Amino acid sequence: MDPFVVLVLCLSCLLLLSIWRQSSGRGKLPPGPTPLPVIGNILQIDIKDVSKSLTNLSKIYGPVFTLYFGLERMVVLHGYEVVKEALIDLGEEFSGRGHFPLAERANRGFGIVFSNGKRWKEIRRFSLMTLRNFGMGKRSIEDRVQEEARCLVEELRKTKASPCDPTFILGCAPCNVICSIIFQKRFDYKDQQFLNLMEKLNENIRIVSTPWIQICNNFPTIIDYFPGTHNKLLKNLAFMESDILEKVKEHQESMDINNPRDFIDCFLIKMEKEKQNQQSEFTIENLVITAADLLGAGTETTSTTLRYALLLLLKHPEVTAKVQEEIERVIGRNRSPCMQDRGHMPYTDAVVHEVQRYIDLIPTSLPHAVTCDVKFRNYLIPKGTTILTSLTSVLHDNKEFPNPEMFDPRHFLDEGGNFKKSNYFMPFSAGKRICVGEGLARMELFLFLTFILQNFNLKSLIDPKDLDTTPVVNGFASVPPFYQLCFIPV
């Protein structure tokens, strides 16, 4: 058959498939802009700032609406009420993970971030239990974070109060905490193996944040037939998995079943207990991918939040002064901060919360999916439909947070200066898919920041009023603009 005829037939089939998918069930789905064949609503979305586009569309179609990214149908949730109703009140029905062709290629359905069903539930339950087990290797997770915080302070001392970009050092600290939990080992910041790991993690975040990856996920045929950065992403992930597998083999040879040292040991012990169960989800494949998931999810998000926190503290020296006064009063100079201190430091706690609220790190979270046909607000959402959640619409709700575009710790303080919780605080998402490392991340943010401010004054290279804190939105995360500062020993 003539190649031209084959091409026309293929394009015609794709067009018909697109029209059929977009028209099927439209009477039951939430409203939304009319999609174009094949490309859907992509032309109506700013790929570099999806969150802003969703906010604009919500003003037209309401808090629940339908979009098509290519052939992929998505239902968008915008605003606290619908997000709570879906992710919390109907948590089980909305607990699936959205379709990610690239991740599915890399992870093969294993791990904790992109798995679904029984596998996801069992691996998540085990990971939560293990991360909360403060007795691994007779050292609590808090001990590990405190140790890394001391190392971080010593690295900052080496800058000798000269101007520096904190990106690298602030990236090393949370990565080392995860390494300590998974591998029972922290690395020197100049260790070549550690630097290679950091390089792969950072490069992957840069790649994932590009519009090209959005295109690959919406048109998965590209993955096999086109060159691009997605190939580098898959190569980096394969490198990390190979490295983790080597460490798993080392653990198998040296493990003491009665004295687990780290996450890998705990997983291997669980595998041993379930070795007679042919349906067990505790396999080497799941261990390797879960460890890679924890490394990827637990490094860049925390380091970016820390980097943004220091920029905001530079911009608002009056806030920094209040935090340091609270540190001096509650902790002093002669001991290290600990998590028990947080309950006695409402202002510092409010500042950490406000940093996370203000920066809105992951504006749309990772997409969910419905696990069955769901009736939601008089609409029928078919099983498997991807759910896109606007966390921006919750964290920047102007009824809950007056002047949401302003950095103001009073958003989390009552009139008496006591810490005030808010149900709208969802930087880790909400419901059954809430970030498994939430507790660890909150511990790291509090301890790293208090250790830094206990030991250093922060000095800006320019007038604080002239510092730009506008986030650089890159399609996946909101990151701070480049800046330098000086760490002046107190």
Rank of each mutant, 00 (worst) to 15 (best):
20 W>Y: 08
437 G>S: 03
194 F>V: 07
178 I>H: 07
325 E>N: 12
466 D>R: 10
431 G>C: 02
252 Q>F: 10
41 N>R: 00
204 N>R: 04
20 W>E: 01
371 T>P: 05
482 F>L: 12
131 L>K: 00
433 R>I: 03
71 L>Q: 15
267 F>S: 02
466 D>S: 11
378 N>P: 02
369 A>E: 10
439 G>R: 11
427 P>L: 02
310 L>K: 01
49 D>N: 09
320 T>D: 04
226 F>H: 03
191 D>V: 03
304 T>H: 14
9 L>A: 14
115 S>V: 07
23 S>G: 13
391 L>N: 00
420 K>F: 05
111 G>D: 03
26 R>S: 13
475 G>A: 14
336 S>I: 12
343 G>E: 15
255 M>D: 03
61 Y>F: 07
473 V>H: 15
398 N>Y: 14
209 S>C: 14
161 A>D: 08
340 Q>I: 12
154 E>L: 08
33 P>W: 00
129 M>Q: 15
468 D>S: 15
44 Q>H: 14
257 I>S: 14
55 T>G: 10
162 S>F: 10
164 C>W: 05
444 E>K: 05
273 K>G: 11
64 V>L: 07
421 K>Q: 13
326 E>R: 01
53 S>L: 00
222 I>R: 05
228 G>W: 08
92 E>H: 07
472 V>G: 08
304 T>P: 05
196 N>L: 10
408 D>T: 06
123 I>G: 06
274 E>W: 05
433 R>T: 03
305 T>N: 03
286 N>D: 04
81 E>L: 06
11 L>E: 00
281 E>V: 13
488 I>R: 08
231 N>L: 11
250 E>S: 10
479 V>S: 15
444 E>M: 03
259 N>S: 11
412 F>D: 00
290 T>S: 10
229 T>K: 15
343 G>S: 14
177 V>K: 02
163 P>R: 08
107 N>V: 11
449 L>N: 01
278 Q>E: 14
366 L>E: 01
255 M>V: 13
325 E>I: 10
235 K>A: 13
450 T>R: 04
469 T>Q: 10
110 F>Q: 12
96 G>E: 08
427 P>Q: 02
417 G>S: 09
216 C>F: 14
235 K>W: 08
